[in-house]
Design a protein around this nucleic acid. Structure first.
Length: 849
RNA sequence: GGGCGCUUAGCUCAGUUGGCUAGAGCAUCUCGUUUACACCGAGAGGGUCGGGGGUUCGAAUCCCUCAGCGCCCACCA
């Protein structure tokens, strides 16, 4: 088969992927040590972004590498219903149609979203194929699959039975925009400048007032006390007396509580148990009433008529105006404080009281910490483990319930006759159930998405049922973005240990964010988003993968631009053209025999590929993707293409040439799967798939012959350097004196250094190639030589400097005594070489003068 | 307030037990169409590795310190 002049990835990629998939290459072999990784299920609500391409690409490199190395390997794909995230997307769709969630029943909504997601999922899976993930599609798990729900429910029941689940009224982070509560880690905390208003509350029992300080005056209507520190001398006498709550006719007490910091503000705090977590706790201690004044939709309630229905921000302005009118504002102070924002809408989060399901985290976190202390999981980069530990040490209970219909229903029912009586039952398709003559009503909330995602490794590997994938649990590698350390990694470790008594994975690799080429975050609003599908269409899937992993280190955010993709594309084309040359050279009917090194170049290239192979193994085993890819890239481009292919034009060893292309393709395959497989399929001596080929074996070679080729390279390099530094574009001949290495490789040297000729002579003549250490000259004319004198002097000076440095090192007694012997020997050898160069240069200068 | 990270060539970044002349991609300059490739080849220039100090025979790499930048966590109203 004749290959086109340039590699056109789009012509081949879809067919190659179909070939792999059809052949069953993605399935585990069932032989060898297991290697497994699970896909962080992409949200089934839209398109993949560039981060996915990196995420999926890194894992795919490992899976392909391990597969070729003979591991029983699997990459388990997934799709996430992404409860809240999808819900937000779907609500937008609804509002486009002029509809809202309130127009439908829970079942209707669930079904509508299901259809929406089903459609999106197909699209997403196509995109994953375009990225080239070698995932076992038959094992795909969707987070709303029957088996997922079953496992999630049984985990919930276990937690419930063991007293780790509780339901209660708590202050929760509430999004008034999306009308659901959030987990603590879903709140964006921002430090901002704000105003601390000092407001006078008139005393009732006594003459005077007490001044409280607050940043949220609009919640004043929900105040049920004023608190001071019990040891605060200023207010000691006032404890137990009452104040009149401004703008109302309500009397509230002044109480003492240690929570109050006497040094902050005025030392007196308004207590609003329904709208502040601290006040909530104070309220519990003092048995205070909770008055909700901000409704779940974010508008004011239980307030005087003129404030009713206002949004919180407007209510704040009006409240301040009303207080101003009554001359109750004593002071305005600028302060820095943190404000919680809805990570999705950007609006402030309202702390509101709601009955919610909570998971006690402390016992789970404790086990996770123990496992981390024991080193049961290795982190890349290691520093992230510290951050995780810190998170686990300060963990708070997890609010599991979300007030959205899209998700796994919480399997709980409430006795209609007894509000406090909740039971576990998974018959969530029924609104009410009867048990022992009692009627129970279904919980309407769904689980936080991360509750199911947190069980992902043992769900996808069917570890609990002993399914045929259970040999892959615990999984080998968990690879995801640094941003998911707490919300996903931590929870998988905790729930994994809780449910399976094992850590869910051995290694965790975290990648940083893909930023745009100016290190700015990619975002639609900035318009700097690189769409992976567009890149693939323009440059090919391999180019994108190569570009993404180049120069990237774990946990580090890194800029990424078209330059890197282009470089990847160019590499693929280089590989393509190496193949074109070789196929052309070998002919259509070639069938290789046992490859064997014959020429110096043969020995040398085997050595180069050996080094590359070992470097790739060493780095990849340590997840140093960029270094591995770099080693592969330069072995193929610099060694195979620039030297070996050139050398092959003057020699004939087809068996070895075939071995070189085969080995190159194998080494490159994890990094550039499509182009390597495409080429493999065109090589007529293969009837296999590269994807399931074995990792290359290196042929025996002779070190000395390889080193001799290195000598030739040195000579060629010097000739090239000297020729380009000479004026004009003349061609020169190389003359040599009794040198069998040159004699035997005349044609090669002539070709590589672009010489007119290479010939033996009896008398030295022209310009000597001094640094290569051989008896070789270029036939440079006397006039040119005179001009060249300066060049020689410069080189002599530079060499002298090198000698000085080397001698300095060797004259240091401690260096000779303490440095490794090999290093000292190397230094000595270098010194000798440099000295020889000086002699030759000096000789040249003498001849010239 | 705690924790983590970054500062290396014009740009974006690698550099893992401290050891040859500190690397890559892109960009720049010179030359070149020799049939694998101009998505190319040959060559070159460009860095006091943020500043200062220390440990060491030897530091981009380890320690201290200063400066600048970024991220995460934290209920002080």
């Amino acid at each position: 088969m004749k290959l086109a002049k340039a590699y056109e990835p789009n012509e081949y990629e879809p067919n190659i992927y179909a070939l792999w998939e059809k052949s069953g290459a993605f399935k585990p072999s069932g032989k060898g040590e297991p290697f497994s990784t699970v896909m962080p299920p992409p949200n089934a609500n839209g398109n993949l972004h560039i981060g996915h391409a990196l995420d999926m690409g890194l894992k795919d490199i490992m899976v392909r590498y391990k597969r070729m190395q003979g591991f029983d390997s699997i990459y388990i794909p997934g799709a996430d219903h992404a409860g809240f995230e999808t819900w937000v997307v779907y609500e937008k769709e609804l509002s486009k149609k002029g509809q809202s969630r309130f127009d439908f029943s829970r079942e209707q909504l669930y079904n509508q979203v299901w259809d929406f997601v089903d459609q999106q999922r197909g699209n997403m899976e196509l995109q994953l194929r375009a990225i080239g993930v070698s995932a076992d599609w038959e094992k795909l798990v969707f987070t709303l699959d029957e088996k997922v729900i079953k496992t999630v429910n049984s985990t919930f029941k276990k937690l419930w039975d063991e007293g780790l689940i509780y339901r209660g009224e708590r202050i929760v982070n509430y999004s008034t925009k999306f009308q659901t509560s959030y987990a603590d880690i879903e709140v964006d905390h921002k430090v901002e400048k704000g105003t601390l208003w000092h407001i006078a509350y008139p005393l009732i029992d006594k003459v005077g007032e007490i001044v409280i300080a607050t940043t949220r005056p609009e919640t004043l209507f929900g105040d049920t006390a004023v608190a001071v520190n019990p040891n605060d001398e200023r207010y000691k006498d006032l404890i137990g007396s009452h104040v009149m709550l401004p703008l109302t006719d309500r009397e509230i007490p002044i109480i003492a509580d240690d929570y109050v910091d006497a040094t902050f503000g005025t030392g007196a705090v308004k207590i609003t148990p329904a709208h502040d977590p601290n006040d909530f706790e104070v309220g519990k201690r003092h048995d205070l009433e909770r008055i909700q004044v901000i409704d779940f939709d974010g508008t004011m309630m239980n307030v005087p008529d003129e404030f009713k229905g206002l949004d919180a921000e407007t209510a704040r302005k009006r409240t301040l105006a009303a207080l101003q009118a009554q001359e109750l504002i004593r002071k305005e102070e600028e302060i820095e404080h943190t404000v919680g924002y809805d990570y999705k809408s950007g609006l402030p989060i309202q702390p509101l009281i709601k009955d919610q399901w909570f998971l006690k985290m402390e016992p789970l976190a404790k086990r996770a910490l123990e496992a981390l202390e024991k080193g049961e999981i290795t982190f890349y980069p290691a520093s992230r483990q510290q951050i995780l530990k810190q998170y686990l040490r300060n963990i708070r209970d997890w609010n599991l319930s979300r007030q959205i219909p899209w998700g796994i229903p919480i399997p709980a029912f409430q006795n209609v006759a007894d509000e406090a009586d909740w039971i576990f039952d998974d018959r969530v398709d029924q609104e009410t159930i009867e048990i022992d003559g009692k009627t129970y009503k279904r919980e309407e909330d769904t689980f936080d998405t991360w509750f199911s995602s947190g069980q992902w490794p043992f769900i996808t590997t069917e570890a609990l049922d002993g399914g045929d994938l259970s040999r892959f649990y615990p999984t080998s590698l968990m690879e995801t973005g640094t941003d998911l350390l707490d919300r996903w990694i931590a929870r998988m470790i905790m729930l994994g240990l809780y449910v399976t008594d094992q850590v869910p994975f051995k290694d965790v690799y975290l990648h940083g964010m893909v930023l745009d080429e100016h290190s700015q975050k990619m975002s639609k609003s900035r318009g700097n988003v690189i769409n992976p599908m567009d890149s693939i269409a323009a440059y090919g899937s391999d180019a994108l993968r190569l570009g993404l992993i180049a120069s990237r280190s774990p946990g580090q955010n890194q800029a990424f631009g078209p330059d890197r993709i282009v470089a990847g594309r160019n590499f693929c084309n280089k590989l393509w053209n190496i193949a074109r040359f070789i196929e052309n050279k070998l002919g259509d009917n070639f069938q290789p025999n046992e490859p064997k090194a014959k020429s110096l170049a043969d020995h040398w290239i085997i050595g180069e590929l050996k080094t590359a192979k070992e470097t790739i193994e060493r780095t990849l085993d340590d997840y140093r993707f960029a270094e591995a890819s770099d080693a592969m890239y330069h072995a193929i481009w610099d060694s195979v293409a620039d030297w070996y292919i050139e050398a092959s034009k003057d020699q004939d060893n087809p068996d070895l040439l075939a071995w070189v292309i085969d080995t190159s393709l194998k080494l490159a395959h994890p990094f550039a799967p499509f182009v390597t497989e495409t080429i493999w399929q065109t090589l007529q001596w293969h009837d296999s798939l590269l994807i399931t080929e074995t990792w290359p074996e290196i042929l025996p070679f002779n070190d000395i012959s390889a080193a001799e080729f290195g000598e030739l390279q040195k000579l060629v390099n010097e000739a090239r350097f000297v020729i380009t530094s000479l004026p004009g574009n003349e061609k020169y001949s190389l003359l040599y004196e009794d040198d069998s290495l040159i004699e035997d490789n005349k044609d090669l040297i002539k070709r590589l250094a672009k010489l007119k000729d290479v010939s033996i002579l009896s008398q030295p003549k022209g310009l000597r190639l001094a640094t290569s250490g051989r008896d070789a000259w270029l036939d440079v004319s006397a006039e040119t030589l005179a001009e060249h004198q300066i060049n020689l002097e410069e080189r002599l000076a530079a060499t002298h400097k090198d000698i000085q440095a080397l001698e300095g090192r060797l004259s240091n007694e401690n260096y000779v005594k303490k440095a490794p012997i090999a290093l000292v020997e190397e230094t000595k050898k270098q010194l000798d070489e440099k000295k020889a160069v000086v002699l030759r240069l000096q000789h040249e200068l003498e001849v010239l003068s």
